[in-house]
């Protein structure tokens, strides 16, 4: 197996993730529409939106960082993908494990913030006060989410004595009862709760709330940039779900399993988001600093001693 074959498979995987992200997004919008009592968008709408966006004729610029913002965001998503084992095949250097390596959990934690920071730069240069406001809120909330999430990750790392996602997945194989969900319930519950914040659905989506502020960081982005951001968002959504699947729900042994599991994981945030209004930023920070943080600490304490 050469480097090129591996690279080819990585690209293929990225394509699958991107398309699955679009399809999943459309599916959830359809589910939401169904609860409201309507049909909702067609399944193929996200692809059309992407096409339309990149075919926009006007391009405006606010400066270099404005260009780079969406690229950073895409990099965040792609970075998450690159170092994330997608399908567990038993072979640590398998085709779908991407470039997973010992210690990639830390890198993944970093990549989660990376996209947001890139957005912050781009949106900041966009110059719209709402962008700045949205990104400030986003970063504040992200910090609040990251704290319990990191604690839970740490707890899992301590539990399996490794920072490699691949190894964590490997350790969970052999039946449902080996999943972190059951072996480390505190960390799992922490992740499940913090996940709501990471997925960016209601009640933790003040960042891009159209009512409270315009549309947050994306206010000034249009055309191709917006297409980029949407693709990045789709990839990020899938990858976040894959991350939680790998850490808590035993990973996936095939693409089908991955799709089913990510769908269900994502569904959880939609399930909550559909029926709850959104918190204000200080309220959501307070919320994360209460139960999830406490559980995170508990998870650490239990496995540290």
């Amino acid at each position: 197996m050469t480097v090129y074959v591996k690279f080819g498979y990585t690209l293929l995987g990225l394509l699958i993730v991107l398309n699955w992200g679009f399809l999943m997004g459309a599916t959830f919008r359809k589910i939401g529409a169904r609860v409201a009592g309507r049909y909702g968008i067609p399944f193929y709408q996200p692809w059309l939106n992407l096409l339309k966006n990149i075919s926009t004729r006007t391009t405006i610029t606010h400066g270099v960082m404005y260009y780079i913002g969406p690229v950073f965001r895409l990099t965040g998503g792609v970075g998450l993908f690159l170092f994330m084992p997608m399908v567990f095949t038993g072979d640590p250097a398998g085709l779908w494990t991407n470039y997973s390596f010992e210690g990639d959990l830390i890198l993944i934690l970093y990549f989660q913030v990376f996209g947001m920071l890139g957005m912050a730069l781009g949106a900041g240069q966009g110059g719209h006060p709402y962008s700045a406001m949205g990104i400030a809120r986003g970063l504040a909330q992200h910090a609040a989410v990251e704290l319990p999430l990191t604690l839970a990750f740490l707890s899992i790392a301590i539990q399996y004595d490794t920072f490699s996602v691949y190894k964590i997945v490997e350790a969970q194989q052999g039946g449902m009862m080996n999943w972190v969900l059951f072996t480390n319930p505190f960390a799992a519950v922490t992740i499940i709760l913090a996940m709501l914040g990471a997925m960016g659905h209601s009640p933790f989506n003040l960042v891009k709330a159209p009512n409270e502020i315009l549309i947050g960081p994306a206010t000034e982005f249009e055309g191709t940039y917006l297409g980029f951001m949407q693709s990045a968002g789709s990839i990020l959504h899938v990858m976040e779900a894959v991350l939680f699947m790998n850490l808590v729900f035993g990973g996936a042994t095939s693409w089908i399993e991955l799709i089913v599991k990510t769908f269900l994981i994502y569904f959880w945030s939609v399930f909550v988001g559909m029926v709850f209004p959104r918190f204000k930023i200080e309220q959501s920070v307070t919320w994360f600093f209460k139960v999830p943080l406490l559980l995170g600490f508990l998870a650490i304490i239990i496995y540290s001693f």
């Binding site: 919008r29 529409a33 968008i41 067609p42 159209p210 549309i215 000034e220 917006l226």
Partner: peptide, 12 residues
């Protein structure tokens, strides 16, 4: 939405 028409909050 089923006709592909959606609302966006910003002119951009």
């Amino acid at each position: 939405f089923r006709f592909g028409v959606q609302m966006r909050p910003t002119p951009r």
